[in-house]
Nucleic acid binder design. Structure first.
Lengths: 335, 335
DNA sequence: GGATTTTTTGAAAAGCTTTTCAAAAACAGA
DNA sequence: TCTGTTTTTGAAAAGCTTTTCAAAAAATCC
């Protein structure tokens, strides 16, 4: 049986209120007694029972992270950033793999309503009205990571996808490419689908390069869809010299397709990805990509969440983190 | 304010004891009243307060998973198995990245002592005496995943590493290889280091193939160490035609080294890995490897944990899951 | 030193559930 | 219908903390 606050009180010969104070607001109790109490706590190895305190003030020191799938390296790395901050703050984080499944999302949320959490980080998926309503019910701070919350006034931490994709285009153009294909995310994905495609195309247009519908194929960010998309793209546009993929996993899929067809990357076709997941440096040739500071996004989102938990009233500032192009070996310089 | 058991009792015109019974042992209350209570619960949207119940019976419906690093795809997949079972059981899982760091392990454990968990899954790292002592203090069931607990009588779920490595050797030999290098895990790792090396070497010996110390290099399971190990191995044994790596990540590292040196895999040097992480099929050529049923290991470990939580008294049966060789494109048939 | 203000302390209540034990109700048997 | 069993129910206690409020102690001021 663990020692309780009563045991400590008896040992130190004070009331339980005093013990509680020593634990929670040490300055409010006279040094002499405080030392006695501290010593008793030490001796008995007392730790406040979290259920009892939770029962009163409903702080759980636990946050939740909703993630599409921890098996995906991009999310794993982002999550790691969250966890590292949470540990610093002596909080636990409960992980929720939603698989982008509405039912599972709801299941988790109803769960959190009863088993309280102090805050929630929602990662990467587009926020719908339904989501937003559910967040509101939860009555705890919510922070978005790698997704946009503008529409609902939810604070977020992300990268400027439009600008990043635009930079990818410039990079390819500067390397002498003119006939460029795009493997985009889903056409209806407002987070990483639409803006990355738009940013890329607008940049092309700015350089006077038209970009027709036949130069883009759509995938779902994963390896297999990248493989398939590349097949389609190559079928309709065999003349292209470079491809921009809206995720590294798709870039890898595209590369695999090309290589297995006996094509040489980058000499015949160059590829640039997006995300800079850890795998991208492990393949050969190593993937050139637009790096999102994934780990940092997780960290900042968690930090923001804890700030909001501490000060629920003050406005949270969203954060747009910088991106950069990591030049490795999959883009050929044609100049 | 959430409705309490009292609100329900009042609404249904019964005592709180009855409501509690309806929630916990519905059969113990007469149908007529039970229906009234159920209806009241429905109407008010009552959910028992987990702190209050935790305060009494100290069940948290939360388990913890201790993992070296969720960023590593092998662990991520194993973890996913855990999480899927936990969700089925309406439990949450708290994730702990230990980074193989003793201090961090202890930090988490002391944390769990106070903030109760119902059980713990310890993944992949070797269990030391210190670990074991700490587990005992925790007073909750512990299950090991992808690591061995024989020495401490802890139940585990894993693969037979010795046999699996031995099969890898046979496979290489049957494909006509005679001069084979090994990239092993650390020489003092009793889990995946020693047995895989031993299994491999013993199989070689059984075929009458001597295997000297110069034919093995040691790494730490990750990509970079595989890269380095391959460099060393190639330096001392340029005549080798095949390499067995004790992890896919190291195999990928080895492959990268070879390819970047302009060597052709598998025509010049064949590679077989271990784990079958999802990346292994994404590289080109796709990696031939000894598959551990990683996801299944996680699932079974979690299932075993919940069984033990339910019946703490009965002996837990450890589980040895089967492995298989996934033949892809990195082993050349020399026959 | 005595009156007054400030600081420190303790008793008790509140937070919500589960379970024990005894009482009440239902049932069975004659 | 009455007695004896069995089933169902409710009151109350236990589980442990934080916080409020009032009392006690200390400090301050004339």
């Amino acid at each position: 049986m663990n020692p309780t606050i009563h045991d400590v009180a008896r040992q130190a010969n004070v009331s339980i209120s005093t013990v509680s104070r020593v634990v929670n607001q040490p300055l409010a109790v006279r040094k002499e007694k405080r030392d006695r109490v501290l010593q008793a706590i030490e001796q008995l190895g007392y730790e406040p029972n979290p259920f009892a305190s939770g029962l009163r003030d409903r702080a759980t020191k636990t946050i939740a992270a909703m993630i599409p799938d921890i098996t995906n390296p991009f999310y794993a790395e982002l999550f790691r950033g969250i966890e590292d901050i949470a540990r610093e703050q002596k909080n636990n984080v409960i992980i929720c793999n939603t698989d982008q499944d509405e039912a599972r999302f709801l299941e988790y949320m109803s769960y959190f309503k009863k088993k309280k959490i102090d805050g929630l980080i929602f990662v990467s998926a587009a926020v719908t009205d339904a989501h937003h309503a559910t967040f509101a019910e939860l009555q705890v701070p919510v922070v978005l990571a790698a997704t946009d919350g503008e529409r609902f006034g939810l604070p977020y931490v992300k990268v400027n996808d439009y600008a990043a994709a635009s930079d990818a285009a410039s990079f390819l153009i500067k390397n002498g490419h003119r006939s460029i294909g795009v493997i985009s995310g889903p056409a209806d994905d407002p987070i990483a689908g639409i803006p990355r495609l738009a940013g890329f195309r607008d940049a092309l247009a700015a350089y006077g390069l038209p970009h027709g519908a036949n130069a883009v194929a759509y995938g779902t960010y994963d390896f297999d869809s990248g493989y398939e998309a590349m097949r389609k793209l190559y079928g309709t546009m065999p003349e292209l010299t470079a491809v921009f993929a809206a995720s590294d996993a798709m870039a890898l899929g595209a590369m695999a397709f090309l290589q297995r067809r006996g094509m040489e990357v980058p000499r015949q076709i160059s590829i640039i990805g997006f995300d800079n997941i850890s795998l991208s440096r492990m393949v050969t040739p190593a993937l050139t990509t637009v790096a999102q500071p994934v780990y940092e996004i997780g960290k900042q989102a968690a930090a923001m969440l804890f700030r909001r938990i501490g000060n629920p009233q003050d406005e949270a500032q969203s954060l747009v983190l910088g991106h950069e192009i990591v030049v490795r070996d999959t883009v050929w310089n044609r100049n």
